[in-house]
Structures are given as structure tokens and as C-alpha cells.
Amino acid sequence: MGYELNRFQGDVDEELICPICSGVLEEPLQAPQCEHAFCSTCILEWLTRQPTCPVDRNPITPNQLKPVPRILRNLLSRCQIACDNAGFGCTAVVKLDMLQSHLQECEHNPKKPVHCELGCGLVVPKDELKDHNCVRELRTVMQQQQQKITEIQTEGSEHKLQISELKREVHLLKEYMKSLRASNPRLREIQTEMENSDVLRWLNSLQPARVTRWGGMISTPDAVLQAVIKRAQMDSGCPSHIVNELMENAHERRWPPGLSTLETRQLNRRQYENYVTKRIPGRQAVVVMACENQHMPPDLILEPGLVMIFAHGVE
């Protein structure tokens, strides 16, 4: 997904605009025959659906894509762009090829890693420093290490047998509770109330998220990435009865009609800012729950909610 056009100083040549996302080209690639240029993310995602050029429909495959000519790269590099942290007070306007080096040093970057000077020496994001507690953080690190030691010590066959027996007992208890709910409607109502309460409690514990780069959304996350996000979600206290369903809803094959294809996402892009999003701690991912997004059109939300994973752009 390209850079937002309104971030650039002065006019941008139309040759530098991606025909797919209408942003300024980011890591561009071009088609082999017609030489139309696109953001690499945009064209690779497009080709997963149809192996043709989006402009003239000439057949192409991902392997046929090639870097854009040097003259086009030079034109891009000279474009003047506002810093990503303009919303946090940075007034810098730099050449596009200097943007990344500027961001690494930008004093207005809320996520810039800084060393705690109060005693623990840990590195924390700048915007979390005011709430940083040395004792609590060091205790967490110590507990994590102790947990690793315990896990190593309990890898013996005897402990594995005990774990297997406990899992069997948990399964039997779940089946017993299921039969009770089936025979008693009031129990079903009570469980529903408890589950809804658990969801609200979890949502209230999460920090509101601000997505600055919707174009960084990963619509087809692989199994490894989903497993990482699922673990972070569970660690955040996500109720067990919705964990798996939310993670299944992290892939576009389960998304509602308004998000299910690249074309519909482009059409609905202006509505994304209306989402109420909560950040999955420590990850470039947000959860968009139906109970917090009743104001959104039905084709942009799903029960119980969506998990959106990003390559970058979540604060």
C-alpha cells in the first residue's frame, strides 16, 4: 500500500501514483510487458486473485514482476514527505529516501525505544515510560525465567502423563456442563451473561488502538503469524470461548462482504477510521468487536468480531 498523497509537499507526478491504492508508490514493481508500476504489496495481493495487470489486463505472474527503472526510483526519492509522526508534533519534511533514517531518530516517535534511567536499565517505548514501574517489570522478567525453568523440569514422561490425565478430566467436565446447559435453559442464559461479561471485561482491559497505515493490513496471514497473534491474545486475557473464532476471523476468507476482497476494501477505505479498535498487546494487531461497532454498516463487521493483523502502522 502506497504513501498517503496528502503527506507530500507540492504536486506528485501521476507516474508515481499506484493505480491500485491511489497512493504514492511504495517499494514499486512493474509489469514486464506494459511496464505499469505498482506498490509491491498492492500488486502481489492483486495477483493472488487474478494473474493480470490491473490497468490493461495483460497476463502476468508474480515471478515476472521486475524493479522499476532507475529514473523512476530517482524521482520517488526526491519527493518531499511529511514525517509519520506529524500527528505527534514533528514538523519535519524530508526526501522520501531519507524517511526511514529520520524515523529512527525522530524525537516525536512515541514508540522510540529508550532506556529506563530509574534503575532497571530496561528498554521501553517512549510513550510507556511514564507508566513504567521498575520493580514490576523486573519481577515479570524473573517470573518468565522461572516459568521457563519449570517447563524444562516438567518435560519428563511422568509429568506428561499427569498433564494428559488433567486434560481428560477437563474434557469430561466440559461435556458434563454442556449436558446441563442443554437440559436447563436458565443455565444457558447464565452462561451467556457470564461470557458477555467476560468479553466486556477483557475489552476494557485493552488499550484503544490507532491505525495509521490501513494499507499495512495483512489479509491472508499464514499459520505461524496467526499462532503468534493467538498466543498474545490469550496472554491478554481473551475469553477462551471466543479465542479460536476470533483467530479464524483474522483471514479474509472469513471477513464480511465489505472487507473480503481488495476491491471492496479500496471502496470502503474511508470508513475504516470509524472502527473502534483495541490493540492486542505487544503486536501489530487489533481486535474489532461487534459489540463496540454497532454503528458500522453490517457488511463491515462480524460476530463476535475481527482480528486485523498489520505489517506496520498500529499505535
Rank of each mutant, 00 (worst) to 15 (best):
D13A: 14
L25M: 08
P19L: 09
P54Q: 08
F38T: 03
I43G: 00
W46H: 03
L44R: 15
P54Y: 03
A37R: 00
N6K: 14
A37M: 02
C53W: 06
D56C: 15
T48Q: 15
I20R: 04
E45T: 13
L44C: 06
G23S: 10
T41L: 11
D56M: 10
N6Q: 14
P51D: 10
C53E: 09
V24Y: 09
R49H: 14
S22N: 14
V12R: 01
S40K: 15
G10T: 04
V24H: 11
I43R: 03
S22Y: 13
G10V: 09
T61G: 10
E45W: 01
F38C: 05
L29H: 10
L29I: 07
R7K: 15
I60M: 15
P32N: 03
R57C: 11
V12I: 12
C39L: 06
Q9G: 05
R49P: 00
I20Y: 07
E26W: 08
S22A: 14
D13V: 03
S22G: 05
S40F: 03
G23M: 12
E14P: 04
S40C: 14
E15N: 14
P28Y: 10
C53S: 12
P59H: 09
L47T: 08
H36K: 08
Q50V: 12
T48K: 15
S40R: 15
E35Q: 13
C18H: 02
I43K: 06
L47E: 02
N58P: 01
C21I: 05
